[in-house]
Design a binder for these strands. Structure first.
Length: 592
RNA sequence: GCGCCCGUAGCUCAGUUGGAUAGAGCAACUGCCUUCUAAGCAGUGGGUCACAGGUUCGAUCCCUGUCGGGCGUACCA
């Protein structure tokens, strides 16, 4: 019997169909197994097949059964005759599956008609709040902010594409002790011209100046404290200074975000929660979660292994709240406002302890809240010597300067490779290539490893970089230009004939096409582990398969159905590449 | 002290519930532009996956220990 869902006309994502078939078969043999553990993998070595399933071995192992016998039982129940040529049992219990060429052609043809993304939207959409970027008003955005910003944006895009609801919220650092120092600096040393020119730079200068003065002179520190207290009590002058700082900073943040192509649904900074802090502290005290200790209000975690020696402060001995309290109020607000299934925090790994404490306190405070709290952390940015990153002068590298340099390098490359282009067009290409290179270099490493800052690496334009992927796209576009064909009209004109036209004879075509099919699988694993580097590697491999195909399978010089078949592959590849790059937040130029 | 992370090719790093022959980029070397864009392609060399045990059909991955490194750890965020 052919399962009707294999005949479904609207959905034809091969790995998902195989996975569904496997789940059905495995559940017949093991009715109580969690379907989530049944997963499909791409065969590492094509000699075994296109896909493999190792789940039965894992299940058998847990139950102390013979894995090969169990895999055979599953195989007896498995019905994939529409999709698979051979389904084989191998070794200790691998189930190897080789796709039917007709099934591949059908999947490609459907993709060509519907938009070639090879993805299946989730059937259980979730709502996720993503908290990322979060720059400080006092400080210019620097290289330390790019990971959070780019990673968070990418996760938001992937979640959205797969059918989830996403709320992005930029939790700006616009409140806190640094403002005492900033106000002292503002009142005593403000340079208006510098403020107009580079607001964040000027604020940083003021902060540094007062900060070092505080180290030398306790009376300066004292006046900073006083200014802070005045601000918190609503002093008009200080409040208006604070407001102006917010405004000039926001303008500058927005410029950077615009450059990076990043959008936030909300920008609710720490100050937004000021009037809720008392309530949080009151609740925690009343419920006996927080207790008084050394003049402060503290939550202890005696019963939790990793937190035993690390209590969390929710109210300082001077009566001020700190960021744990603000973050608690923030969770409450988000839960009440958006009712999310999860809140994802994209921050530096050094905040792991903070988030462990935060999540634990929230669970005690509101045990019935069903929201899942996730800390998606990333490694630090280090200098070439392995210490926390600074320039030789001890400054951080500003994000704007980094992006300028990236565009400048890209511009040199563009003019060198393609000197005939109009300089305005070259500038635009350089913008897309330069920014893309920075983003890609940031997303390519596993997020948890520390990141050694290196101009050349971050701005590199060859090898496994964004320009390599963009270049593949422009070559495809160029083919269609030369052929004077509009891609979507071309695909439309073929209609369902595409299935019959497709020829997948050479190994280059076969490899390319098989890789295309797995786009959706990769996106799912990106979300599972919150690791966009899977997508980077997938796209790099895809571009590699395409380039081999391009070098070995002439498109426009071939004729008839071969030519059309290859044009289809070109278009599908370009669509997946561009969609993948879009998910990384990277644009693609028409030419380069 | 406690907690988290890391140690994979000369360098920088991937490696998806444990899976079959551990992969890329850079650097080095050899070829390929009168042929759809050479920001490219094809190929060569390069490994005790820090070390020692354990778990099992199978370990870079899980457990234990050792060595080496990074980070965090009560009034910054």
């Amino acid at each position: 019997m052919t399962d009707p869902k294999f005949m479904d006309d609207t959905v034809f994502v091969l790995p998902k169909l195989i996975e569904a078939g496997l789940r059905e078969a495995i559940l017949k043999v093991f009715p109580d197994v969690d379907p989530e553990v049944i997963q499909l993998q791409v065969c590492a070595n094509p000699k075994f097949g296109d896909y493999q399933c190792t789940s039965v071995m894992a299940i058998a192992k847990k139950r102390k059964l013979n894995p090969r016998e169990q895999a055979q039982k599953v195989l007896d129940e498995l019905e994939l005759s529409d999709i698979a040529d051979e389904v084989q049992l191998a070794g200790p219990g691998f189930i190897n599956i080789r796709l039917k060429p007709e099934a591949i052609k059908r999947a490609l043809s459907k993709a060509a008609q519907q938009g070639g993304y090879f993805i299946q939207k989730t059937d259980s959409p979730r709502t996720a709040v993503i908290d990322f970027s979060s720059p400080n008003v006092a400080k210019p955005m620097h290289v330390g902010h790019i990971r959070s910003t780019i990673l968070g944006d990418c996760l938001a895009r992937v979640l959205t594409l797969l059918g989830h609801q996403v709320v992005t919220d930029n939790h700006i650092g616009d409140w806190g002790t640094q403002f005492g120092k900033l106000i002292v600096g503002w009142k005593q040393h403000l340079d208006r011209d510098a403020l107009m020119k580079d607001a964040l730079g000027e604020l940083e200068r003021l902060y540094r100046k007062v900060n070092s003065a505080c180290d030398e002179d306790a009376s300066v520190l004292e006046s900073a404290r006083k200014e802070l207290v005045k601000l918190q009590q609503g002093d008009e002058e200080n409040l208006s200074i604070w407001n102006e700082m917010q405004e000039v900073s926001r303008v500058q943040f927005d410029k950077v975000y615009q450059r990076l192509g990043i959008h936030f649904d909300h920008t609710l900074g720490e100050s937004f929660y000021n009037d809720q802090l008392k309530g949080v502290v009151g609740d925690l005290t009343e419920q006996g979660i927080a207790t008084e200790s050394q003049g402060a209000k503290v939550v202890f975690f005696e019963d939790i292994d990793g937190l035993k020696d690390h209590p969390a402060l929710i109210l300082k001995s001077d009566g001020g709240a700190n960021y744990t309290t603000t973050d608690l109020a923030t969770i409450q607000y988000r839960v009440e406002t958006w009712n999310p299934d999860e809140i994802i925090y994209v921050t530096d790994g050094r905040q792991q302890l903070h988030f462990k404490q935060l999540f634990e306190i929230f669970r005690r405070w509101q045990p019935d809240a069903k929201v899942e709290l996730v800390h998606t952390w990333f490694g630090s940015i280090l200098g070439p010597d392995g210490t926390p990153f600074k320039t030789r002068a001890g400054d951080t590298i500003k994000l704007n300067d980094l992006l300028d340099e990236a565009e400048e390098r890209a511009f040199k490359a563009v003019t060198e490779k393609n000197p005939d282009l109009d300089s305005e067009i070259s500038r635009e290409i350089a913008r897309i290539v330069g920014i893309g290179a920075v983003k890609y270099a940031d997303l390519l490493p596993n997020r948890q490893t520390d990141y050694v800052f290196d101009w050349d690496k971050l701005l590199s334009l060859s090898g496994n970089t964004a320009p390599y992927l963009q270049y593949a796209c422009t070559r495809i576009r160029s083919i269609f230009r030369k052929a004077a064909l509009n891609e979507s009209e071309f695909l439309k004109s073929l209609g369902s004939d595409a299935e019959n036209i497709l020829e997948l004879d050479s190994d280059f075509e076969k490899k390319l096409v098989r890789h295309l099919l797995n786009f959706g699988l990769v996106l799912e694993s990106v979300l599972e582990d919150q690791r966009p580097n899977y997508l980077c590697n997938y796209l790099f491999e895809l571009a590699g398969h395409y380039t081999s195909f391009y070098e070995n399978c002439p498109v426009l010089k071939s004729e008839g159905s071969t030519r059309n078949s290859r044009l289809i592959l070109c278009s599908l590849t370009r669509q997946v590449l561009e969609k993948g790059l879009f998910l990384l937040g990277i644009e693609t130029p028409e030419k380069m």
